[in-house]
């Protein structure tokens, strides 16, 4: 037990140190633009399909579930509110975060881990390039920039999926669905009278999730030891720790944002 706490404390210290080093290495020096662009593609663009599918089917199933809950009250018309509320604030951000943690987090940990165990990280350092600057910075930046956009894509796909299911099976016309969703967003209020509060939650959360998953993936990759087996372990740990941390962070972020927004 003591050893476990100790190793957690060390890992936390390591993650915080890596975060600090990443911040100090910003914006990333010579060639940073090209490296960021490559990662925007690998992290962002290539995650669009899975996030789209995740959002779409989540929205569809939410509509079905909502109708079951609402039907006894004769309130099926409110499906749009139910879906908008859960999709924009919770499911869009969290599911995109977790899907990207699975796809990108695993990829980052495996790539950096392989570089670590084959001494490519040492080679980088010896040849005058710091691994944090050339490897971690572009990945973290790319994740922070793209996960919020991916969450928006998930939100949109979810709303579309829910709208389709509602009109096809639940007898809720598209217009009614749309109006109900708009009502919900209005009900949650606007910041400064313009920006929907739902959207702020829906963007701040995935921004944080992007930072969490990329930093943790880099951490596990850079710490990989013991050949190819070590790379496998690092990859698993990256995905598991990122997913769990995202879920825990989601709770506290929600609490915080409910106070602030």
């Amino acid at each position: 037990m003591r050893r476990l706490v100790q190793s957690w404390a060390l890992a936390l210290q390591d993650v915080l140190l890596l975060t600090w080093q990443t911040m100090r290495a910003l914006p990333g020096g010579r060639g940073a633009g090209a490296r960021l662009l490559a990662q925007l593609d690998a992290v962002g663009v290539q995650s669009v399909p899975i996030v789209l599918l995740t959002g779409l089917f989540t929205g569809m199933v939410l509509a079905l579930q909502a109708s079951v809950q609402l039907a006894p009250f004769g309130a099926t018309l409110f499906v749009g509110r139910f879906v908008a509320a859960s999709m924009l604030r919770e499911l869009g951000p969290v599911l995109s975060g977790i899907m990207v943690a699975g796809r990108v987090g695993a990829g980052i940990a495996a790539e950096l881990g392989a570089m670590k165990v084959t001494e490519q990280l040492d080679a980088l350092e010896t040849l005058g390039a710091e691994p944090v600057r050339v490897l971690v910075v572009p990945r973290v930046l790319a994740a922070a920039m793209t996960v919020p956009l991916l969450a928006l894509i998930a939100d949109t796909a979810g709303m579309v999926g829910a709208a389709l299911v509602s009109s096809a099976y639940l007898g809720v016309p598209l217009r009614a669905f749309q109006a109900a969703a708009a009502d919900q967003i209005a009900l949650d209020g606007f910041i400064g009278g313009v920006i929907p509060a739902d959207l702020v939650q829906g963007l701040v959360k995935p921004l944080i999730f992007g930072l969490i998953l990329s930093i943790l993936a880099c951490h596990h990759g850079l710490r990989a030891r013991g050949g190819t087996a070590g790379v496998g372990i690092a990859t698993t740990n990256a995905v598991v720790s990122a997913s769990i941390t995202i879920l825990i962070a989601d709770y506290f972020l929600t609490q915080l944002l409910l106070i602030l927004v």
């Binding site: 084959t118 001494e119 490519q120 040492d122 080679a123 980088l124 350092e125 010896t126 040849l127 005058g128």
Partner: peptide, 14 residues
């Protein structure tokens, strides 16, 4: 380090 060259065991090519 600019004055040191290191040849790694597995070559460690990028």
């Amino acid at each position: 380090r600019t004055r040191i060259g290191m040849v790694f065991q597995g070559a460690a090519l990028f």
